[in-house]
Computed example of a mutant assay.
Amino acid sequence: MKITHCLDGQGVSRLALSGELDMASADAFHEQVQHALASDRPNQLIIDLAALTFCDSTGIRALVDARAAVLACQVAFRVVNPRGVTRRVMRVTGVLDVLTAV
């Protein structure tokens, strides 16, 4: 998995994921979330899944855990652009609306 990190001028930190979010990449994702929170001190963290091609149950758990960690820091959290299999898995597991809510 590749993670691209950027911060806009309005306090929004964005992590764009490409490839697969699974057991092999969940720890790297968690580290990037923690890094974005510590270094950017954003008021919102957006996880962009437009280029994510696969997400298994470990990946879903990583997204849910990221949401909890971000909200615990009083930072807004939102997942955007889930597509294909990733969107289906999020819907079936019941987290689509929770993770993508504005």
Score class of each variant (00 low, 15 high):
1 M>F: 03
2 K>V: 08
3 I>D: 01
6 C>L: 12
6 C>P: 14
7 L>C: 07
7 L>I: 09
10 Q>F: 15
11 G>R: 06
12 V>G: 00
14 R>M: 06
16 A>N: 01
19 G>E: 04
20 E>S: 13
21 L>T: 08
21 L>M: 08
21 L>Y: 10
22 D>S: 06
23 M>K: 11
23 M>Q: 12
25 S>D: 04
26 A>F: 06
27 D>S: 10
29 F>C: 00
31 E>T: 12
32 Q>L: 00
32 Q>H: 07
35 H>G: 11
36 A>N: 02
37 L>A: 06
38 A>D: 11
38 A>K: 09
38 A>E: 11
40 D>Y: 04
41 R>W: 12
41 R>M: 05
42 P>F: 00
42 P>T: 01
43 N>F: 10
43 N>Y: 13
45 L>W: 06
46 I>S: 02
46 I>C: 03
47 I>L: 01
48 D>E: 06
49 L>D: 04
50 A>S: 10
52 L>N: 07
53 T>I: 03
55 C>L: 10
56 D>L: 09
56 D>A: 05
56 D>F: 08
56 D>H: 08
56 D>G: 15
57 S>I: 00
59 G>P: 02
61 R>E: 01
61 R>N: 10
63 L>G: 06
69 A>D: 08
70 V>C: 02
71 L>E: 14
73 C>K: 14
74 Q>Y: 11
78 R>G: 03
78 R>K: 14
78 R>I: 06
82 P>N: 08
85 V>S: 13
85 V>F: 14
87 R>L: 08
89 V>W: 05
90 M>H: 01
90 M>Y: 01
91 R>M: 15
94 G>D: 11
94 G>N: 15
95 V>S: 01
98 V>Y: 07
98 V>I: 07
100 T>I: 00
100 T>C: 10
102 V>M: 09
102 V>F: 10
102 V>Q: 15
